[in-house]
Design a protein around this nucleic acid. Structure first.
Lengths: 155, 155
DNA sequence: TTGTATGCAAAAGGTTTGCAATGAT
DNA sequence: ATCATTGCAAACCTTTTGCATACAA
């Protein structure tokens, strides 16, 4: 992510913290920064590694807590994945995903043709929809190659 | 699920086991049966409870392993959720989901109008798509009520 | 100064693995 | 008879919690 967009994100964080009346801590800045630099929907533990290169001594607990806060502030969302670790996405605008069933990688897909779907209102039964995304399941190029050569996946 | 459909599922299991050359065990029958009776995308541990009412003494490990097998045999899929426990879905035909951000409930949505989406092929970069589903995020009726009355969510 | 966030340690929740015994074909 | 599956126990990974301290406003 370009420097200018990073600056924008920090501005968003500042505004969101003020709006919600919560302190703007170094840890929150560093975690949002680390998350925003990635497009691979990292887990909390993966982010912990990045975060500690910029600010050693940050605790795992704090990363978990800050990520929850970022979601609450509307600066990140939890990505739906078939796996057993929560993954975070710094992109909150509507977009879609390619989900690899081999390695559980989640790849962003921007597709305007999918951005205006209509949900059949009759079927929602009082469920209030705030957003949606399309998940395409399949096999990523790496896993296709591995499948051909008979190699086991390493993730 | 009606009795006749249950019978069909057992037939599918039988066929799939033969096709893959794996034994058809009691445990596999009971786990598939328990999963097929639910529409709420249960976790392995939730299924363990159901399974043990029919066949006490089944181990947790076995349920985890059988579920992996059912996915491999094409009789179930892992559901994408924002939470931190893997959830399973016995419906492998194309359908969509309402995902509640409050309680993480996942509700099935059948909507023919969403069943024929076209993926912009140019954007997939060698990713091989086998299927897709649309995830509508939002708030379920229960959580909306809880939000209005100020009650905390209990799941 | 006041209230929230952080770090630590420990617990809780979810999943996987090695191995001996069992069971399906 | 043969090979995969099961059950158990333990390890492993992920997430949450309680509490004293540190920090932002």
């Amino acid at each position: 992510m370009p420097v200018s967009q990073q600056a924008t994100r920090l501005g968003e964080l500042e505004a969101a913290c003020r709006r919600h009346g919560v302190p703007l801590t170094v840890q929150r800045r560093v975690v949002l920064d680390a998350l925003s630099r990635r497009t691979d929907h990292p887990t909390a533990d993966q982010l912990l590694v990045d975060v500690r290169t910029h600010l050693p001594g940050v605790s795992r607990t704090t990363v978990y807590r800050v990520l929850e806060t970022l979601v609450r502030l509307g600066l990140a969302v939890k990505t739906c994945t078939p796996g057993s670790a929560v993954r975070f996405d710094p992109r909150t605008e509507r977009h879609h995903h390619l989900v690899c069933l081999g390695c559980e990688r989640v790849i962003d897909l921007h597709a305007p043709s999918l951005d205006r779907l209509r949900l059949p209102a009759a079927r929602t039964g009082g469920f209030e929809v705030s957003d949606y995304s399309v998940h395409f399941r399949g096999t990523c190029p790496d896993c296709r190659r591995r499948a051909r050569t008979g190699t086991r996946r390493s993730r």
